[in-house]
Design a binder for these strands. Structure first.
Lengths: 152, 152
DNA sequence: TTCCTTAAGGAGTTTTTTGTCCGAATTATA
DNA sequence: TATAATTCGGACAAAAAACTCCTTAAGGAA
């Protein structure tokens, strides 16, 4: 309803990495297994997050990905600005290029406060906190494997 | 950020048709020109809206599309359930198949109230009202043509 | 009846997103 | 130094979304 798969994978992976002991690189393969996401595709996303400075990567034995120092408090908005592009917050729900208070589409004034709530929400959620929530065991980062589900 | 192009075109077209005198069919070509969207693509969307009972279509001279009798109070939610699919309201923002209060993703309880606002908003907006808003001239259904913009 | 106009419908194309494969570079360790 | 494990990077493939083209059917009017 709102996010591309790429954004979803990026957020899931970042939260997962944030749940792991800092300084111990996490393998792409392990993340992909854990999230049940295509490994080769995830690798591209992680590479991109490295280039944008959210992650550090290490090659060879004991390699993998770590949150870059100080990035534990990265907000989801910061992530989405990378994965969805810089216009993420600016778009008109009807797709108009120009849609402001002065030149509004008919949905503009209803949509605006809702959009602002989304923006506030994304600004307000940080990797660190989401990771802690996951660590309590009350929240899931991925669907349960089919094996764990009640038989159909 | 939220809607597919198909949904955007559908909503724009329905509002536009609702602004026109009822009973006088509107040409696909005229709608496409007015909204500045690809006519052949729009035609498919209008066809689909006919099949789903929102529009009536007429072929030949004096043909075109009309809002079906009684459909003036169609909500945007009804439209979106057709264009985005029946899971529109159900989806998890992280893409999990199963994400409920009991089996929640780490964003679930922040996202839920925002999603409910979106749903309420879509339930609350009806073609009739949106069409009237456009008729006041205060709101735009499409971008201004380049010719109307100040020179670059 | 004939002509013109319109939507219907099917097939195909293009673009974007998502996903795959493979060889090269890098690194720890035996 | 040799080996195995890992990311990097580029090219490629598949799937989905957006868009086009063309033929057919239907309806109104001369």
């Amino acid at each position: 309803m709102v996010l591309s798969r790429t954004s979803q994978y990026a957020i899931q992976a970042l939260i997962y990495i944030a749940t792991q002991p800092p300084g111990e690189p996490v393998l792409n393969r392990d993340i992909a297994d854990r999230l049940n996401v295509p490994a080769a595709y995830l690798a591209k996303i992680l590479q991109s997050l490295c280039k944008h400075g959210l992650l550090d990567s290490f090659r060879g034995r004991l390699g993998g990905f770590c949150l870059r120092e100080g990035m534990q408090r990265t907000s989801l908005m910061q992530v989405l600005l990378l994965t969805e592009g810089p216009d993420f917050t600016k778009s008109c729900i009807l797709g108009l290029k120009e849609c402001t208070d002065e030149t509004a589409c008919p949905m503009h004034f209803k949509w605006k406060p809702v959009k602002n709530k989304i923006i506030a929400m994304m600004n307000d959620m940080h990797l660190e906190d989401l990771a802690k929530a996951v660590q309590t065991g009350k929240y899931r980062l991925a669907d349960l494997p089919a094996a764990a589900l009640p038989a159909a």
